[in-house]
Amino acid sequence: NWRSRIVFLLKTNSSKPMLHLIGNRPSADAVNQWAESLDKLLNGTTVFSIFLKSEFCKENIEFWTACEDFKMLTSRKARASKASNIYEEFIKSEAPQEINLDLHIRNDIIENLQEPATTSFLAAQVKIYSLMENNSYPRFIHSNLYKKLCAAARQEVKYNKS
């Protein structure tokens, strides 16, 4: 499947891209747009998530995604349940996927858990987005994985023009 093939690529040192083995790979346009901004990369791709897993910081993208899902909830009951899950998974001390937040942001989240609003995790989400944008994203853009995806995109464009 797509995910296992990307993981395989992360481990491959071959100079010849093996991306032709991947079904449903991203289009050449999508791969090229990823270099424009983190927002373009976050827009529906699992490649960055897989990269973050290889960098041992997958919790950042998973938290960010959970917050995006949380903001879409309209039911107070659903929002309270999801807020509790996000807190247990990412915020509380020693959480399974604890993210790096300062005490002020963490305390604000705890105060809002009883009656969470769609903006309850906004400060934390902005902080994690900033960490990804300033640290993980540049490493991804300079990674062998992204270089291989770009090379495959160039080959695809070249092949399609022939």
Rank of each mutant, 00 (worst) to 15 (best):
L52H: 05
S136G: 15
N144D: 14
D108W: 02
S14Q: 07
D39V: 01
K148E: 09
C150W: 04
L38I: 08
L9K: 13
R25E: 01
S4E: 08
L113Y: 08
A124N: 05
E94T: 11
H142L: 11
K16E: 15
W2T: 10
S84F: 09
M132Q: 07
P138D: 11
Q33A: 04
N60K: 01
L52M: 15
T74D: 14
S14R: 05
S81Y: 02
W2K: 12
F121K: 01
N60M: 10
K158D: 01
A95P: 00
R154V: 00
F56D: 14
C67M: 04
K40I: 00
V47L: 00
H104K: 13
N1C: 14
E88K: 03
W34Y: 10
K82H: 13
Q155A: 01
E36M: 05
K71T: 14
T45W: 00
A151Q: 12
I86T: 05
W2Q: 08
R76I: 08
A78R: 08
T74A: 06
E115D: 05
A152Q: 07
K58M: 14
K161E: 00
T65Y: 04
W64M: 06
I110E: 13
S162Q: 05
D102L: 05
F90D: 03
N112E: 03
R25D: 02
G23K: 13
H142A: 15
H104G: 01
L101P: 00
A83M: 08
R106T: 10
E111I: 04
S93C: 12
I86D: 09
F70P: 04
S37N: 09
S14N: 10
M132I: 08
N60V: 06
K53T: 11
Q114V: 12
A95N: 05
S14A: 14
N100Q: 15
S49N: 10
K77R: 09
L52V: 05
K53I: 04
W34S: 07
E89G: 00
H20Y: 10
I141N: 11
N144S: 11
S15M: 13
N60C: 13
G44H: 02
F70Q: 07
L41Y: 00
P116V: 12
R5W: 10
S49R: 03
N134L: 13
P17T: 15
H104T: 09
S14M: 06
R106C: 12
M132H: 01
K77G: 05
F63S: 02
I128T: 08
K53Y: 07
S143E: 10
R3K: 15
F121T: 01
S54K: 06
R5L: 15
S49K: 03
W64Q: 03
P17Y: 14
Y137G: 13
V157E: 04
S93D: 12
T46N: 15
Q155S: 09
A123T: 01
D69W: 00
P17R: 13
K77T: 13
C57D: 08
T65C: 04
E88L: 12
R139H: 11
R25K: 11
W34T: 07
R79A: 15
E133M: 09
T46V: 05
Q125A: 09
K82E: 14
S162I: 03
Y137Q: 12
I128L: 12
I61H: 02
L38F: 08
F121Y: 00
N24D: 13
K58C: 13
V126G: 00
Y146V: 06
G44E: 07
N135P: 00
A80Q: 12
R106E: 07
C57L: 11
